[in-house]
């Protein structure tokens, strides 16, 4: 029967922009900045750019886990901020390097886990739950710091996390890449990742398939909290101090990166590789605009426009089919 056998042809050229528009945009940006200032493409600047984006990369990787599940995690920035001031405080108080880091990682996991519990068991929308937890994290942060930066002497190991090099590669870049690779393996190669995508795609169907949806939603948000804590530790080490407001600015950049990544490859679902490319785009913009001496306030405007442009490119083309 014709109705039954007619199968839609796999789309070909019309989807080029849908799939690669974001990458083309990134390429154009790089070419533009390279022409404006040849220093931009130097090895030195590339390494410095990678170091700049390592923290954003860590936080965005975490956010990707929750976005795969279709859960918003608005708390990544503040969990990172809290982690930063907490690790500094612990070190100054005299806790050992490893113990301090361990405690902070556990706190990150705890915040993420609580996000998951609130979302799944109290059935509060993640948008609201994580916003509330974000506020709580900020409160704890101010409780520790009283709103003032914390300075002090740190062990060499801690300094190395944000400022050290292995060969000519900065340590934070290595940390970010390790998390990225673990993220790709988890989401693409394991059944846990597959279940997370299944839940994000259609939670009812996932439940009907016998997947314990609550468990994986908690897992995703917990991983998000953990990544945020790692990011916060690297951030504190780079700053060499505990800055109470250091994490606050990251949340929007994280979402921009994840959404840019969602737009990439035409898959329309969050994915770690895409997120990384989103992070690179934001990094290239910041770095490039600074190098050609554009005032910082334009940077924000440009970032916003790029996000709208990239995402609309995908959604408009995606809908026209």
């Amino acid at each position: 029967m014709s109705i039954n056998t007619s199968v839609k042809k796999q789309p070909l050229k019309s989807d080029f922009f849908e799939k690669y528009g974001v990458l083309v945009g990134l390429g154009l940006l790089i070419i533009f900045f390279s022409i404006k200032t040849p220093r931009f493409i130097s090895a030195r600047n590339i390494i410095s750019l990678l170091r700049q984006i390592s923290i954003l990369s860590l936080l965005s990787s975490g956010l990707t886990f929750s976005m795969i599940l279709n859960e918003f995690d608005l708390s990544v920035g503040e969990i990172a901020g809290l982690s930063g001031v907490l690790v500094v405080t612990l070190l100054i108080t005299g806790y050992s390097f490893f113990l301090s880091i361990l405690i902070v990682l556990i706190i990150g996991i705890l915040f993420g886990f609580l996000n998951g519990i609130i979302v799944t068991k109290l059935k509060i929308l993640s948008f609201i739950a994580t916003l509330a937890m974000s506020t709580i994290a900020l409160g704890v942060n101010y409780f520790i710091t009283r709103g003032k930066p914390i300075y002090g002497e740190f062990p060499a190991g801690f300094k190395a996390i944000g400022r050290g090099y292995i060969g000519s590669i900065p340590v934070p870049v290595i940390v970010a890449f390790v998390v990225l690779i673990l993220g790709v393996v988890l989401t693409k190669k394991t059944k846990y990742g597959r279940y997370m995508y299944a839940i994000g795609g259609n939670i009812i169907a996932a439940k009907h398939s016998g997947i314990n949806t609550d468990r994986y939603r908690i897992l995703g948000l917990t991983l998000s909290g953990l990544s945020a804590a790692i990011g916060g530790i690297v951030l504190a080490s780079r700053l060499g101090s505990g800055q109470p407001t250091a994490g606050s600015g990251y949340m929007l950049d994280c979402f921009a990166a994840v959404f840019l990544g969602t737009a990439i490859f035409g898959r329309k679902v969050a994915n770690i590789t895409g997120t990384f490319i989103g992070v690179v785009i934001i990094g290239v913009l910041s770095n490039g605009l600074t190098m050609i001496a554009v005032p910082y306030y334009y940077e924000y405007m440009v970032k916003g426009l790029v996000l709208i442009g990239a995402v609309s490119l995908t959604s408009v083309l995606g809908h026209s089919r």
């Binding site: 279940y195 995508y197 259609n202 169907a205 996932a206 009907h208 398939s209």
Partner: peptide, 15 residues
Amino acid sequence: QGLNLEMDVKTNLSV
């Protein structure tokens, strides 16, 4: 309730 429409045939069958 039964399918993940944006995913491919293989993924839906194997989930």
